[in-house]
Design a protein around this nucleic acid. Structure first.
Lengths: 243, 243
DNA sequence: CGAGGGGTTGACGCCGATCAAAGCTGGTGG
DNA sequence: CCACCAGCTTTGATCGGCGTCAACCCCTCG
């Protein structure tokens, strides 16, 4: 457990050990919140707990791995890569979200590439384990349905907020999302790099840079420390409304 | 049943009568495909069958109706309207799809406005009926999960294909989608009006018109009869690749 | 100290939004 | 049956926003 504070910069995930779901302190957030603690005693395959450094690939689109992941900490981006090399980020997920759920609905392989944005802490759940639990506890189905519905809502929001309107408005919407869903105790959030932001809203890197720089000059966006930022949500909403 | 061929132009739905799920000839496509025929004998509330003329509103975002709908025939658009009056279409659904599923996952109201694009034929399922069946037949859960996953995949495709790249490429992608998912026996599909297409890909009506007109001149898109069209998929894919 | 990667800024040209006007088409009523 | 109208589509002209290329800055790391 002393490893928890380490963060080596390598592309391999760090194995933190077996997950102890029955005494997981964030289980109510998580995928298995419906289950009794006793459910985990008879699992055929273990659920493991890993830590991934920023930028590491959790899984690749099309690969046929057999794991679902539950995010405990950090941000994960789901990326769609076109054969021509350009890529578009279709979702940004944080603690409590589960990824790779398409495997449960019969997909032969992952539909996206999943990449850690910052340091990510997650539980790796064998597909067969979920299926086993699903048979024993039908209530787990509701949890899966809820996860899917939440991701569907996020995808719709992505279309409406991040893929519509002028570049300035999209950047403003993105900042509001970071502020709302990814801010910590002191209401500050990590400002993603320009490339990621560009891939989220579908504009050029330079355009994002210009908008962010302008927001900084206007004091609508300001640094707290390191790359933690705060924003003036009211001003951003005004920009989204009035253009 | 003689009413089936009628199509009065009014905003009210035409009631066709009780659905007979146990002998529905497209049930394997539908929401209740997992259930035995006997499941429908003890329903507390009826499942009704309606026909809606083009343009009629099936339900409005935010309203708290208590029905889920299964599409039997026709196309339905899910629309997000901004307070400023502009709107964006986030999904286009056809036979076999179910809409209003967010009610099952605890949403207090519909997340979108649903509007019939052409003549739509659907089953109106009371929320309580689905919940009742879900208790009796946990397998229904899988079906719901599958529906949600399919819609999530559609939403992701919407982001990647219809909200990314130049206007010409987006229109090409849209035509490919219409060709793939909404074409009938003779491989022809209904060409949506320019306003709807514009709301799908997030560009101006005039721009869509220019692109469509250009495709017609290039013989990549050609009318079969009325407003049924065919397209040259290979040429469209080339445009998407090369710009 | 130099190299390299990410961020910022400038210059320029093109795509697409906007406004305006002119076809087209189906429906209505005389 | 034809004239007319309303709504949709097409096309043109113009202008601004944004993509592209390039230079430069700043910070980190070797």
């Amino acid at each position: 457990m002393t490893r928890e504070t380490e963060q080596s910069i390598c592309t391999d995930a760090e194995w933190l050990g077996r997950s102890h779901c029955e005494r997981c302190h964030i289980r109510r957030l998580m995928f298995f919140s419906e289950l009794p603690g006793s459910a985990f005693s008879s699992l055929l395959k273990p659920i493991d707990h890993y830590i991934h450094p920023p930028g590491s690939v959790l899984y690749e689109a099309g690969s046929d791995k057999q794991f679902i992941y539950a995010i405990r900490r950090g941000m994960v981006k789901l990326v769609h890569e076109t054969p021509e090399g350009s890529c578009r980020i279709v979702r940004l997920l944080g603690p409590g979200a589960a990824i790779g759920l398409e495997l449960l609905e019969g997909a032969a392989s992952y539909h996206h590439t999943a990449i850690a944005v910052d340091q990510v802490d997650l539980c790796k759940i064998p597909l067969s384990t979920t299926q086993q639990l699903q048979l024993e506890y039908p209530a787990l189905c509701n949890r899966i349905g809820k996860q899917l519905q939440e991701q569907l809502d996020l995808a719709d929001q992505w279309i409406v907020a991040l893929s519509t309107g002028a570049a300035k408005q999209r950047v403003a919407q993105l900042l509001l999302i970071l502020d709302e869903f990814f801010s910590d105790d002191n209401d500050s959030f990590i400002l993603l790099n320009r490339e990621d932001m560009a891939a989220m809203i579908g504009v050029a890197v330079e355009t994002v840079s210009r908008m962010i720089a302008e927001f900084k000059r206007m004091k609508i966006l300001y640094r707290l420390k390191d790359n933690r930022f705060q924003c003036n949500a009211t001003a951003l909403m005004k920009i989204i409304r009035d253009g």
